[in-house]
Amino acid sequence: MNMLYRAIVISLAALALAGLSGCQSVGVLSEVGAGVAQVTGVVTPQQAESIKRAGTAVGKTFADITPEQEYYIGRTVGATVLNRYKPLNNESANHYLNVLGQTLAQFSDRPETFGGYHFLIMETEEVNAFAAPGGLIFVSRGMLRCCRSEDALAAVLAHEIAHAACQHGLRAIKKGRLTSALTILAAESAKSLGGQYLAQLTEAFEGSISDITATMMNSGYAREFERQADQAAVTILERAGYDPQGLTAVLTEMQKHLKPDGAGFAKTHPSPGSRIADVAKFVGPVRPVTSPAVRQARFQAALGKL
Protein backbone atom coordinates (compact mmCIF):
# COMPACT_ATOMS: atom_id res chain seq x y z
CA MET A 1 0.00 0.00 0.00
CA ASN A 2 2.73 2.37 1.09
CA MET A 3 4.77 1.29 -1.93
CA LEU A 4 1.91 2.00 -4.30
CA TYR A 5 1.40 5.38 -2.69
CA ARG A 6 5.07 6.22 -3.22
CA ALA A 7 4.85 5.05 -6.82
CA ILE A 8 1.88 7.38 -7.37
CA VAL A 9 3.66 10.31 -5.77
CA ILE A 10 6.70 9.65 -7.94
CA SER A 11 4.46 9.37 -11.03
CA LEU A 12 2.99 12.76 -10.26
CA ALA A 13 6.43 14.24 -9.67
CA ALA A 14 7.64 12.77 -12.96
CA LEU A 15 4.67 14.30 -14.72
CA ALA A 16 5.39 17.67 -13.18
CA LEU A 17 9.03 17.36 -14.25
CA ALA A 18 8.05 16.40 -17.76
CA GLY A 19 5.97 19.57 -17.85
CA LEU A 20 2.79 17.75 -18.87
CA SER A 21 -0.41 19.69 -18.43
CA GLY A 22 -3.99 19.18 -17.23
CA CYS A 23 -5.50 16.30 -19.11
CA GLN A 24 -2.90 13.69 -20.01
CA SER A 25 -4.12 10.25 -21.01
CA VAL A 26 -3.87 7.42 -18.51
CA GLY A 27 -1.48 5.62 -20.85
CA VAL A 28 1.10 8.35 -20.70
CA LEU A 29 0.78 8.74 -16.96
CA SER A 30 1.41 5.06 -16.24
CA GLU A 31 4.22 4.90 -18.77
CA VAL A 32 6.17 7.73 -17.15
CA GLY A 33 5.25 6.78 -13.61
CA ALA A 34 6.02 3.08 -13.88
CA GLY A 35 9.36 3.79 -15.53
CA VAL A 36 10.49 6.23 -12.88
CA ALA A 37 9.24 4.11 -10.00
CA GLN A 38 11.13 1.15 -11.38
CA VAL A 39 14.39 3.09 -11.81
CA THR A 40 14.17 4.39 -8.26
CA GLY A 41 13.57 0.85 -7.00
CA VAL A 42 10.12 1.46 -5.56
CA VAL A 43 8.49 -1.30 -7.57
CA THR A 44 9.91 -4.43 -9.17
CA PRO A 45 10.29 -4.62 -12.96
CA GLN A 46 7.35 -7.06 -13.04
CA GLN A 47 5.13 -4.67 -11.09
CA ALA A 48 6.19 -1.81 -13.33
CA GLU A 49 5.34 -3.84 -16.42
CA SER A 50 1.91 -4.65 -15.05
CA ILE A 51 1.18 -1.01 -14.19
CA LYS A 52 2.29 -0.08 -17.68
CA ARG A 53 0.16 -2.78 -19.33
CA ALA A 54 -3.00 -1.84 -17.43
CA GLY A 55 -2.42 1.82 -18.17
CA THR A 56 -1.78 1.33 -21.86
CA ALA A 57 -4.84 -0.87 -22.27
CA VAL A 58 -7.05 1.94 -21.01
CA GLY A 59 -5.11 4.56 -22.94
CA LYS A 60 -5.35 2.60 -26.15
CA THR A 61 -9.13 2.55 -26.17
CA PHE A 62 -9.10 6.34 -26.23
CA ALA A 63 -6.35 6.47 -28.80
CA ASP A 64 -8.51 4.25 -30.99
CA ILE A 65 -11.33 6.78 -31.14
CA THR A 66 -10.03 8.88 -34.00
CA PRO A 67 -10.81 12.61 -34.16
CA GLU A 68 -13.14 11.79 -37.06
CA GLN A 69 -15.14 9.33 -34.95
CA GLU A 70 -15.12 11.78 -32.04
CA TYR A 71 -16.64 14.30 -34.46
CA TYR A 72 -19.55 11.98 -35.35
CA ILE A 73 -20.15 11.16 -31.69
CA GLY A 74 -20.18 14.91 -30.93
CA ARG A 75 -22.69 15.72 -33.68
CA THR A 76 -25.22 13.22 -32.32
CA VAL A 77 -24.58 14.23 -28.69
CA GLY A 78 -25.20 17.84 -29.76
CA ALA A 79 -28.40 16.95 -31.62
CA THR A 80 -29.58 15.08 -28.50
CA VAL A 81 -28.90 18.15 -26.32
CA LEU A 82 -30.96 20.24 -28.75
CA ASN A 83 -33.76 17.71 -28.53
CA ARG A 84 -34.19 18.78 -24.90
CA TYR A 85 -33.18 22.45 -25.17
CA LYS A 86 -34.40 24.67 -27.98
CA PRO A 87 -31.71 26.70 -29.80
CA LEU A 88 -31.98 30.48 -29.61
CA ASN A 89 -32.48 31.74 -33.15
CA ASN A 90 -30.55 35.00 -32.80
CA GLU A 91 -27.89 35.32 -35.45
CA SER A 92 -25.98 38.29 -34.01
CA ALA A 93 -25.86 36.90 -30.45
CA ASN A 94 -24.73 33.49 -31.72
CA HIS A 95 -22.12 35.15 -33.94
CA TYR A 96 -20.69 37.08 -30.98
CA LEU A 97 -20.55 33.85 -28.96
CA ASN A 98 -18.63 32.16 -31.79
CA VAL A 99 -16.16 35.00 -32.29
CA LEU A 100 -15.33 34.91 -28.57
CA GLY A 101 -15.43 31.11 -28.28
CA GLN A 102 -13.49 30.22 -31.43
CA THR A 103 -10.87 32.83 -30.53
CA LEU A 104 -10.51 31.36 -27.02
CA ALA A 105 -10.29 27.80 -28.36
CA GLN A 106 -7.07 28.75 -30.15
CA PHE A 107 -5.46 29.24 -26.74
CA SER A 108 -6.40 25.80 -25.44
CA ASP A 109 -4.02 22.83 -25.46
CA ARG A 110 -6.06 21.34 -28.30
CA PRO A 111 -7.03 24.09 -30.71
CA GLU A 112 -7.47 21.74 -33.68
CA THR A 113 -10.31 19.22 -33.50
CA PHE A 114 -11.73 17.40 -36.52
CA GLY A 115 -14.61 19.79 -37.15
CA GLY A 116 -13.50 22.73 -34.99
CA TYR A 117 -15.22 24.51 -32.11
CA HIS A 118 -18.73 25.93 -32.60
CA PHE A 119 -21.07 27.62 -30.12
CA LEU A 120 -24.84 28.01 -29.77
CA ILE A 121 -27.19 29.63 -27.24
CA MET A 122 -29.99 27.47 -25.76
CA GLU A 123 -33.28 29.21 -25.14
CA THR A 124 -33.84 28.30 -21.50
CA GLU A 125 -33.64 30.16 -18.21
CA GLU A 126 -32.01 27.10 -16.62
CA VAL A 127 -28.35 27.85 -15.75
CA ASN A 128 -26.53 25.35 -17.94
CA ALA A 129 -23.81 24.68 -20.52
CA PHE A 130 -22.61 21.58 -22.37
CA ALA A 131 -19.60 20.58 -24.43
CA ALA A 132 -20.16 17.73 -26.90
CA PRO A 133 -17.08 15.75 -28.00
CA GLY A 134 -15.04 17.51 -30.66
CA GLY A 135 -16.11 20.99 -29.58
CA LEU A 136 -19.84 21.64 -30.18
CA ILE A 137 -20.64 23.88 -27.21
CA PHE A 138 -24.05 24.96 -25.90
CA VAL A 139 -24.71 27.74 -23.38
CA SER A 140 -28.14 28.55 -21.92
CA ARG A 141 -29.66 32.02 -21.74
CA GLY A 142 -29.85 31.51 -17.96
CA MET A 143 -26.07 31.03 -17.93
CA LEU A 144 -25.55 34.15 -20.06
CA ARG A 145 -27.55 36.12 -17.47
CA CYS A 146 -24.96 35.09 -14.87
CA CYS A 147 -22.23 36.73 -16.98
CA ARG A 148 -21.82 40.44 -16.25
CA SER A 149 -18.77 40.96 -18.48
CA GLU A 150 -17.08 39.50 -21.56
CA ASP A 151 -14.39 38.19 -19.19
CA ALA A 152 -17.02 36.24 -17.23
CA LEU A 153 -18.54 34.82 -20.42
CA ALA A 154 -15.03 33.98 -21.64
CA ALA A 155 -14.58 31.95 -18.43
CA VAL A 156 -17.77 29.95 -19.08
CA LEU A 157 -16.74 29.21 -22.67
CA ALA A 158 -13.15 28.39 -21.65
CA HIS A 159 -14.48 25.87 -19.07
CA GLU A 160 -16.54 24.14 -21.78
CA ILE A 161 -13.65 24.28 -24.30
CA ALA A 162 -11.51 22.56 -21.66
CA HIS A 163 -14.07 19.73 -21.26
CA ALA A 164 -13.97 19.15 -25.04
CA ALA A 165 -10.16 19.50 -25.27
CA CYS A 166 -9.67 17.01 -22.41
CA GLN A 167 -12.22 14.59 -23.96
CA HIS A 168 -14.21 14.35 -20.74
CA GLY A 169 -17.33 13.44 -22.74
CA LEU A 170 -15.65 10.46 -24.41
CA ARG A 171 -14.45 9.28 -21.02
CA ALA A 172 -18.07 8.93 -19.91
CA ILE A 173 -18.52 6.05 -22.39
CA LYS A 174 -18.70 2.85 -20.36
CA LYS A 175 -15.54 0.75 -20.63
CA GLY A 176 -17.42 -2.37 -21.72
CA ARG A 177 -19.22 -0.46 -24.47
CA LEU A 178 -15.95 0.91 -25.77
CA THR A 179 -14.34 -2.50 -25.74
CA SER A 180 -17.20 -4.06 -27.70
CA ALA A 181 -17.27 -1.16 -30.18
CA LEU A 182 -13.54 -1.52 -30.76
CA THR A 183 -13.89 -5.26 -31.19
CA ILE A 184 -16.53 -4.69 -33.86
CA LEU A 185 -14.24 -2.15 -35.51
CA ALA A 186 -11.33 -4.57 -35.53
CA ALA A 187 -13.52 -7.25 -37.10
CA GLU A 188 -14.96 -4.76 -39.54
CA SER A 189 -11.59 -3.90 -41.02
CA ALA A 190 -10.89 -7.57 -41.67
CA LYS A 191 -14.24 -8.35 -43.29
CA SER A 192 -16.48 -6.50 -45.67
CA LEU A 193 -18.64 -3.66 -44.43
CA GLY A 194 -21.83 -5.66 -44.29
CA GLY A 195 -25.21 -4.54 -42.92
CA GLN A 196 -24.75 -6.72 -39.86
CA TYR A 197 -21.65 -4.77 -38.83
CA LEU A 198 -23.35 -1.47 -39.47
CA ALA A 199 -26.22 -2.53 -37.20
CA GLN A 200 -23.86 -3.64 -34.43
CA LEU A 201 -21.81 -0.50 -34.79
CA THR A 202 -24.92 1.68 -34.64
CA GLU A 203 -25.95 -0.10 -31.45
CA ALA A 204 -22.55 0.65 -29.87
CA PHE A 205 -22.88 4.23 -31.15
CA GLU A 206 -26.34 4.66 -29.57
CA GLY A 207 -25.01 3.30 -26.29
CA SER A 208 -22.03 5.65 -26.36
CA ILE A 209 -24.31 8.64 -27.03
CA SER A 210 -26.57 7.78 -24.11
CA ASP A 211 -23.58 7.22 -21.77
CA ILE A 212 -22.30 10.69 -22.63
CA THR A 213 -25.61 12.58 -22.56
CA ALA A 214 -26.67 10.90 -19.29
CA THR A 215 -23.42 12.01 -17.66
CA MET A 216 -23.45 15.48 -19.19
CA MET A 217 -27.11 16.30 -18.61
CA ASN A 218 -28.07 14.24 -15.54
CA SER A 219 -25.33 12.95 -13.28
CA GLY A 220 -22.42 15.30 -14.03
CA TYR A 221 -18.71 14.58 -14.46
CA ALA A 222 -16.42 13.50 -11.66
CA ARG A 223 -15.35 16.38 -9.46
CA GLU A 224 -11.78 15.92 -10.67
CA PHE A 225 -12.84 16.64 -14.27
CA GLU A 226 -14.57 19.85 -13.15
CA ARG A 227 -11.45 20.93 -11.30
CA GLN A 228 -9.35 20.16 -14.40
CA ALA A 229 -11.75 22.15 -16.59
CA ASP A 230 -11.66 25.15 -14.21
CA GLN A 231 -7.88 25.06 -14.10
CA ALA A 232 -7.55 24.72 -17.89
CA ALA A 233 -10.09 27.57 -18.25
CA VAL A 234 -7.84 29.84 -16.17
CA THR A 235 -4.89 28.89 -18.41
CA ILE A 236 -6.89 29.72 -21.55
CA LEU A 237 -8.03 33.08 -20.09
CA GLU A 238 -4.48 34.01 -19.11
CA ARG A 239 -3.00 33.03 -22.48
CA ALA A 240 -5.69 34.94 -24.36
CA GLY A 241 -5.36 38.01 -22.17
CA TYR A 242 -8.69 37.94 -20.30
CA ASP A 243 -9.01 38.52 -16.58
CA PRO A 244 -9.03 35.03 -14.97
CA GLN A 245 -11.21 36.51 -12.21
CA GLY A 246 -13.95 36.26 -14.84
CA LEU A 247 -14.34 32.70 -13.55
CA THR A 248 -14.82 33.67 -9.90
CA ALA A 249 -17.17 36.46 -11.05
CA VAL A 250 -19.50 34.10 -12.92
CA LEU A 251 -19.35 31.52 -10.10
CA THR A 252 -20.34 34.24 -7.63
CA GLU A 253 -23.36 35.15 -9.82
CA MET A 254 -24.26 31.48 -10.19
CA GLN A 255 -24.22 31.14 -6.43
CA LYS A 256 -26.97 33.78 -6.27
CA HIS A 257 -29.12 32.20 -8.99
CA LEU A 258 -28.70 28.45 -8.48
CA LYS A 259 -31.07 26.66 -6.18
CA PRO A 260 -29.11 23.84 -4.50
CA ASP A 261 -31.79 21.31 -5.46
CA GLY A 262 -32.47 22.86 -8.87
CA ALA A 263 -31.84 21.61 -12.40
CA GLY A 264 -28.83 22.22 -14.64
CA PHE A 265 -25.50 23.15 -13.10
CA ALA A 266 -26.87 22.82 -9.56
CA LYS A 267 -27.33 19.11 -10.21
CA THR A 268 -24.29 18.34 -12.37
CA HIS A 269 -21.54 20.55 -10.89
CA PRO A 270 -19.87 21.03 -7.51
CA SER A 271 -21.30 24.04 -5.63
CA PRO A 272 -20.08 27.42 -6.94
CA GLY A 273 -18.71 28.20 -3.47
CA SER A 274 -16.42 25.20 -3.43
CA ARG A 275 -15.32 25.91 -7.01
CA ILE A 276 -14.48 29.52 -6.07
CA ALA A 277 -12.34 28.23 -3.20
CA ASP A 278 -10.51 25.86 -5.60
CA VAL A 279 -10.07 28.47 -8.33
CA ALA A 280 -8.73 31.05 -5.84
CA LYS A 281 -5.77 28.71 -5.33
CA PHE A 282 -4.49 29.57 -8.82
CA VAL A 283 -5.91 33.04 -9.47
CA GLY A 284 -5.39 34.50 -6.01
CA PRO A 285 -8.00 36.06 -3.72
CA VAL A 286 -11.32 36.96 -5.35
CA ARG A 287 -11.46 40.53 -6.65
CA PRO A 288 -13.77 42.30 -9.11
CA VAL A 289 -13.14 41.79 -12.84
CA THR A 290 -11.26 44.54 -14.62
CA SER A 291 -12.76 44.82 -18.10
CA PRO A 292 -12.02 47.91 -20.24
CA ALA A 293 -15.02 50.13 -21.12
CA VAL A 294 -14.82 49.33 -24.85
CA ARG A 295 -14.99 45.59 -24.12
CA GLN A 296 -17.89 46.06 -21.69
CA ALA A 297 -19.76 48.16 -24.27
CA ARG A 298 -19.57 45.52 -27.01
CA PHE A 299 -20.58 42.80 -24.55
CA GLN A 300 -23.69 44.80 -23.58
CA ALA A 301 -24.47 45.53 -27.23
CA ALA A 302 -24.22 41.85 -28.20
CA LEU A 303 -26.08 40.21 -25.31
CA GLY A 304 -27.70 43.00 -23.26
CA LYS A 305 -31.12 42.58 -24.87
CA LEU A 306 -31.38 38.79 -24.61
Binding site: E68, Q69, E188, T202, I209
Partner: peptide, 14 residues
Protein backbone atom coordinates in the same frame (compact mmCIF):
# COMPACT_ATOMS: atom_id res chain seq x y z
CA UNK B 1 -8.78 4.20 -41.93
CA UNK B 2 -10.62 7.40 -42.63
CA UNK B 3 -14.35 6.85 -42.48
CA UNK B 4 -13.96 3.71 -40.39
CA UNK B 5 -16.15 3.08 -37.37
CA UNK B 6 -18.53 5.80 -36.25
CA UNK B 7 -19.08 7.59 -39.56
CA UNK B 8 -21.77 9.16 -41.72
CA UNK B 9 -23.31 5.73 -42.41
CA UNK B 10 -23.71 5.11 -38.69
CA UNK B 11 -25.14 8.61 -38.26
CA UNK B 12 -27.63 7.94 -41.08
CA UNK B 13 -28.63 4.64 -39.46
CA UNK B 14 -29.06 6.43 -36.11
Amino acid sequence: LAGKGFNSDVEAQF
